[in-house]
Design a protein around this nucleic acid. Sequence first.
DNA 1: TTATTGTCCGTAATTAGTTCA
DNA 2: ATGAACTAATTACGGACAATA
Lengths: 233, 233
Amino acid sequence: MFSGGEYSPSETEPFSCLNSVTASRKKKNKNKRRFSDEQIKSLETMFKSETRLEPRKKMQLARELGLQPRQVAIWFQNKRARWRSKQLEGDYSILRANYNSLASQFETLKKEKQALAIQLQKLNDPMKKPGEEGEFSGQGAAVNRSEGEYTTKGESDMNPRLSNEQPEHGLGVLSYEDNSIKAEYFELEEPNIMSMVEPADGSLTSQEDWVSLDSDGLFDQSSSGYQWWDFWA
Amino acid sequence: MFSGGEYSPSETEPFSCLNSVTASRKKKNKNKRRFSDEQIKSLETMFKSETRLEPRKKMQLARELGLQPRQVAIWFQNKRARWRSKQLEGDYSILRANYNSLASQFETLKKEKQALAIQLQKLNDPMKKPGEEGEFSGQGAAVNRSEGEYTTKGESDMNPRLSNEQPEHGLGVLSYEDNSIKAEYFELEEPNIMSMVEPADGSLTSQEDWVSLDSDGLFDQSSSGYQWWDFWA
DNA sequence: TTATTGTCCGTAATTAGTTCA
DNA sequence: ATGAACTAATTACGGACAATA
């Protein structure tokens, strides 16, 4: 029902200025902004087919919905903005999932490589005692090592190319000083995990006191205190 | 009087209703909205020390700046929101950098493993023709394989744990069917790269026609058309 | 219990700066 | 080079929710 609905400042009044009204009825009324569900639905549908509106359809839509063309235009602008930030959120969780996936693949790959190295060592020199598991430290090109010499503790200088600067934000790419991957990047974000702090909320890291959550360096340099870009933007 | 900044609807008038006013001075004046630089500066400073302020200081600050307490409160809310989304952006680029780093480490690790496998094979049976390079497909626990048996084409079922559901958004974690890492996740986002499509813009993936960018599956399932959560949210 | 207060969220609308036909 | 349309950043509002008095 929501009797209110319309509201529309109409073509003749370019500004709405919904003052007073203050002491509104508790429930209904819907005295001011917030387009009606049908208006929203139409706009949404339109947006799905084209995120930008040609003047043609803008006018038409505005007439149909009883809104000013300006309002339709603004709605589309805001919608695009909202959409972009939603996009970012989605991309983020996908990227995080991919990262976690890759990380565990990395771990198993490392184990496999270790296994191969051990086998190789056994074949190479069956008499050696199995203390430090040996591996290559090579770059993949220098494969044909003579025979028995390994450098212990591989993965040390794996790829030097990562050390280029990151002028973007003064961000320093994190050079993976040790070769353990820090396991899951952020626990895959099931809502149940955050729920200890604040039960009903679907957002990502946001919360009133999320600052206290990642205290053990899960993010390595992000999301803990505040640093670099946050203020002074 | 006070043609300048102030505006403040004052304590007596809870609503502002700034219509007309239209014909404004070109440069100065700053008609309505937009607090003055000093107000902003104070607010910003305050925010830096405490992102949420107790009613005590809210009042004081409001008096100092000639704003309604409500405005101060709202400014802080909005600021917190802006800050969070900035945070997300930062986290995203860090995560992407880490992903790229990990990906290239993964590549070199894979090469190294391959190299070991080849060596092993050579030692194992020097007479065999070097067709399919053999590897383990094992899970890391079953390391001590008898000796000569390899399964060609490793990495197939590397980690089954990734296939748990992702109820969050209906997002399907992307199971890495092939073992090539797709190289750089998104080219490290130097502004110069985007500049082919739209020169001056610092945002992340946003652009009017960014849809045409990742045509070969860089994001695998993100950022190409639109799917799941975007509309119908 | 209900009423108050504070927070976050989604969103409408405004402003300033940029782009383009 | 003027103006229409866009973007990004802001200001502001109302509703949902939680803690509290």
